[in-house]
Amino acid sequence: MIPAAFEYFAPGSVAEAIGLLEQHGDEAKLLAGGHSLLPALKLRLSQPGVLIDISRVAELHGIEAGDRLSIGAATTYAAIASDPAVLGGCAVLAECAGQIGDIQVRNRGTLGGALAHADPAADLPAVVLALDAAIAVQGPAGARSISADDMFVEMLTTALEPNEVVTRVTFPVLGAGEGASYAKLKHPASRYAIVGVAAYVRLHADGSVAAARVAVTGAGPRAERQHATESALVGSAGDAAAIAAAAELAGESMEYLGDIHASETYRRAMVKVYTRRALEQAVARARG
């Protein structure tokens, strides 16, 4: 299978990429790792006239450690999964990135591409939501930051404006009393999430739950916070009974997708199971 013909540009900077996007309008698409876009082009599901390859723009690469972790949009999953600063400060991100597809997918696929594409079965959106990451974007009107809660609007649709480029994503560095986990039921062939749950908790000194953020991906058209589960957990002792009760509330008010891989009923059941597993592990990690 061969994509329809297109013109190809490999700009050297984000500014240049934005200029090309403006110049070519609806005809143009950004290309990063290509592991969602190229399969679609090969099937001719999409036939853009212009591809703007940002995968080798230097300013979109690299992981900067500080109060928060700042990760360039074109950084690959493999680079994230093996980075010492990520493993030390935000291990759940490495845990998630390291479970995407297979090693060849992880050597190409990028953080920015995964978030901009917003595939309903993508893993990283759940972690981005649970950790309250901030998505830095640049466009013709300048730079702005999109909060994780605002980013995922609908299936394959984000808060990005036309001609905007995701440049960096910043994640918190977790400290004492904080823990996070990603639990995934993977499709056995593609390893996309049939259900994926990311959980974050912060505990008081007495071990009770001070804050919780839980997000589900794979089950519905978009990755979504689970507010009922979060509220039930906050103020509780964070013990097995409290976690089980909170997990039962997960997925109750969500829209579901059913397909040949898993029915809506099965996904609904698995959301609760994987929410419980993710929370148990997040709390265990927070207790150290």
């Binding site: 299978m1 190809y8 290509g34 190229l38 399969p39 090969k42 297979d102 060849q104 050597n107 062939a189």
Partner: peptide, 23 residues
Amino acid sequence: DTSQCGACVVHVDGKSIKACTVL
């Protein structure tokens, strides 16, 4: 030809990738 099987794996700058899904 759909990035699933790995028959096309080669190394680019030392890392394995699926050559059917790279230009």
